[in-house]
């Protein structure tokens, strides 16, 4: 018998269940792209059959970090840049949990970039949503790792001399097995991509363009957007690493020229997740580790039985 009966529960799920009954007023500004992420998540989760209490949403710091204040799942609002290591461990401790990590571009591509690279490399079975608004919002408008070259801000008054980071290419090269970009202004596509990401067995990275109406007024609202899967102008195979890489590069190049390309970029279906790999080498138990602590009949090994090597 499981100690976690919210997991795998079969029942109708109303999307309102994901809205806290005593809802804190979102502190996001009117017109903020973050509302788009929240909305598409609330739509996607019931559609993939997940109940609020089998989902753990782990966030970083920034406007995006408030996501789990307004999404009524189990939540862990961590510290700046560290959502991924917390999320990874929760998944290893209880692989049956649905783990979603989220943060902003500063959080994931700046201060937490090391964790992003290694989480993608290891291919943990989880979804990682990066709210990419190309700016630091909560600290009031400083240049971020994805701000375009030449972008002026209070901390780079003469315009940024740095080339922006390429999130999709980085993700692919680091080893993510699902990479997509969507935009808050395209909620239907966003919902579908989130569903795919959740159902994908491996590290699914979504670069989610979320316009910042307050601190990035110069930036586009990410309209019009083009879905690379729907457009006749683009033709590439999402399961082909080289073609995906080329498409990603083009997408990153044209964003700063005003062309917003979105869609699925890379999907590797047959790569085992980290959990599967770790089980294969005998370093992850078959039964979720967390269950053992609630199992009164569990037998616990003792150091006393290891002492022969010391005598």
């Amino acid at each position: 018998m499981s100690a976690f009966n919210a997991i795998g529960e079969e029942r109708e799920i109303d999307r309102d269940e994901y809205t806290p009954g005593v809802e804190p007023q979102p502190t996001w500004c009117p017109g903020c792209g973050d509302f788009g992420v929240l909305k598409s998540l609330k739509q996607a989760l019931p559609e993939v059959g997940k109940t609020p209490e089998e989902v753990l949403t782990v966030t970083g710091i920034g406007c995006s970090g408030k996501l789990n204040s307004y999404l009524d799942t189990y939540g862990f609002h961590t510290i700046h840049g560290r959502s991924l290591p917390v999320a990874r461990a929760a998944k290893l401790a209880n692989p049956e949990l649905e783990v979603i990590a989220a943060g902003g571009d500063g959080d994931g591509y700046g201060i937490g970039c090391n964790h992003f690279i290694h989480s993608a490399r290891e291919n943990h079975d989880m979804t990682y949503i990066v709210f990419n608004n190309e700016i630091f919002g909560l600290t009031k408008g400083q240049t971020s790792p994805t701000s375009p070259k030449g972008h002026k801000s209070k901390t780079q008054p003469s315009g940024s001399a740095k080339t922006p980071l390429r999130p999709l290419s980085l993700s692919l090269n680091a080893g993510a097995s699902y990479v997509a970009r969507t935009a808050a202004v395209n909620p239907n596509q966003a919902k579908e991509i989130i569903k795919e990401a959740i159902e994908h067995d491996g590290f699914a990275h979504i670069d989610f363009l979320t316009q910042c109406p307050t601190w990035n007024k110069d930036a586009r609202q990410y309209v019009p957007y083009i879905d690379v899967q729907d457009s006749d102008d683009y033709d590439f195979d999402v399961s082909d690493r080289a073609e995906a890489a080329e498409m990603m590069r083009e997408t990153e190049d044209v964003l700063n020229e005003g062309t917003v390309l979105t869609g699925r970029y890379y999907v590797e279906e047959d790569r085992p997740s980290y959990g599967q790999e770790k089980k294969a080498v005998g370093e992850l138990p078959d039964q979720p580790l967390a269950e053992r602590y609630f199992d009164d009949d569990a037998e616990w090994e003792r150091s006393y039985d290891l002492l022969e090597r010391h005598t």
């Binding site: 961590t78 510290i79 290591p85 461990a89 401790a93 949990l97 964790h115 690279i117």
Partner: peptide, 29 residues
Amino acid sequence: FPDMGGVSEQVEDEIAAAALAVGASHAGV
């Protein structure tokens, strides 16, 4: 640990290491 159903993770840095321990503990281990 492998013989005891336990999990050991060597990770990218010590920030991650402590954060993983927090995450695992949060999830009941």
